[in-house]
């Protein structure tokens, strides 16, 4: 209980809360920078800290080391941050929008659709008009197509009900998964290994090109989400209540679907299908800081980046044989999720 007698008291309280939020976000941002710098030193090509520092300051004559740091590690880490942020924020938005703790990009079928699009490009060269952007381009296009199909399926004349939307997503996702399996069954071994590798999710081939490709849609999606923080908070009280308070639910739904399609499409296009990130990260932060999206979205962006960097670094160097990062997140995701289910107390999902 706090003593609030006057408007000034309330203003001070609000300012204190706001300051606390800002410092948490700043701490997360700092954490991200630190993680970035630490993981910059880890990789299969051995470089000492002094080597790295001299390369970063531009004073090194070691061209091979520069190649490794500037053309291999830095863009790979930046891609990890972008994808981690995109998947985490999208998972958060989906969980709030559908009031379902299981909601995540893979649940809505987006990842399966995108994977199928990429497989079409790999197997039959569909989308060749995009040249070297064939595979990411097809992943992206199918991301939107899937989202559109899900939305169309769930539309009734009374509008879209969130549970129906989720079910439609599961159905469409299952459909594309099935199609993907069929495709894998009929192609020859060379192409098959390419498809399987792609669907396992990896940052192995993420360089500057990938980063440039993904950063625009991911940023666009994240910006839309950032501008909808108030609406997302309101929707957390329930769609009916939010509408009563003045939120245009239809417009919000479309905007959020657009935003998550952009963010997830951009991610899947460069790194393949990486599961569980959109599920785990939002839950961690919701447990730590509560349900306010003004805090949660920036934290998911920074925290998602930290999480993805950590996962990728572990996947590529902790084991004798490099693991695709998607496999690692799945292995960690399941037991973590069970843990979350058993310990969360503050939430009563609908």
């Amino acid at each position: 209980m706090i003593e609030l007698k006057t408007v000034e008291d309330l203003e001070n309280y609000q300012r204190a809360v706001s300051r606390r939020s800002k410092s948490i976000v700043a701490a997360a941002g700092l954490g991200l920078i630190l993680t970035f710098l630490v993981t910059l030193m880890i990789g299969n090509y051995s470089l000492s800290i002094t080597d790295i520092l001299s390369i970063l300051s531009g004073m090194s004559g070691d061209s091979v080391g520069s190649y490794i740091i500037i053309d291999v590690r830095v863009p790979r880490l930046l891609c990890c941050i972008a994808v981690g942020a995109a998947l985490s924020a999208s998972g958060l938005v989906m969980q709030s929008l559908f009031k379902n703790p299981m909601a995540s990009p893979s649940v809505l079928g987006i990842s399966s659709g995108a994977a199928f699009g990429a497989a079409l490009a790999l197997a039959f060269g569909i989308g060749g008009f995009m040249g070297r952007y064939m595979v990411p381009g097809m992943a992206f296009i199918f991301c939107f197509l899937t989202m559109g199909a899900v939305y169309m399926l769930a539309r009734t004349k009374y509008g879209v009900v969130s549970t129906t939307l989720l079910l439609a997503g599961v159905a469409i996702g299952a459909f594309f998964s099935g199609m993907l399996s069929l495709l894998q069954y009929v192609v020859n071994e060379n192409v098959l290994s390419g498809i399987v590798y792609w669907t396992m999710g990896s940052f192995n081939n993420c360089g500057w090109q990938s980063f440039q490709l993904a950063i625009i849609p991911i940023s666009a999606g994240l910006l839309i989400m950032l501008f909808s923080i108030k609406e997302l908070n309101l929707i957390a009280a329930g769609e009916e209540q939010a509408a009563n308070i003045g939120v245009n639910i239809k417009k919000l739904r479309i905007l959020m679907i657009l935003a998550t399609s952009l963010a997830v499409g951009g991610s899947v296009a460069i790194s393949g299908v990486i599961g569980f990130v959109g599920l785990i990260v939002p839950h961690i932060f919701r447990m730590l800081v509560g349900p306010n999206h003004a805090l949660l979205i920036p934290l998911c962006v920074f925290g998602g980046g930290i999480f993805m960097i950590a996962m990728d670094t572990i996947a590529k160097s902790a084991f004798a044989m490099a693991l695709p990062v998607g496999v690692l997140t799945s292995l960690i995701g399941a037991p973590f999720f069970i843990y979350v289910m058993r310990t969360r107390k503050n939430e009563i999902w609908d």
Binding site: S63, P136, N205, C206, G207
Partner: peptide, 21 residues
């Protein structure tokens, strides 16, 4: 072998180290 079906970034992954060294 097998570079035929690689996307451009995968391909650069194989050639970048050669150019650098």
């Amino acid at each position: 072998s097998g570079t035929r079906i690689l996307t451009s970034e995968h391909y650069n992954n194989n050639t970048g180290p050669c150019d650098a060294t």
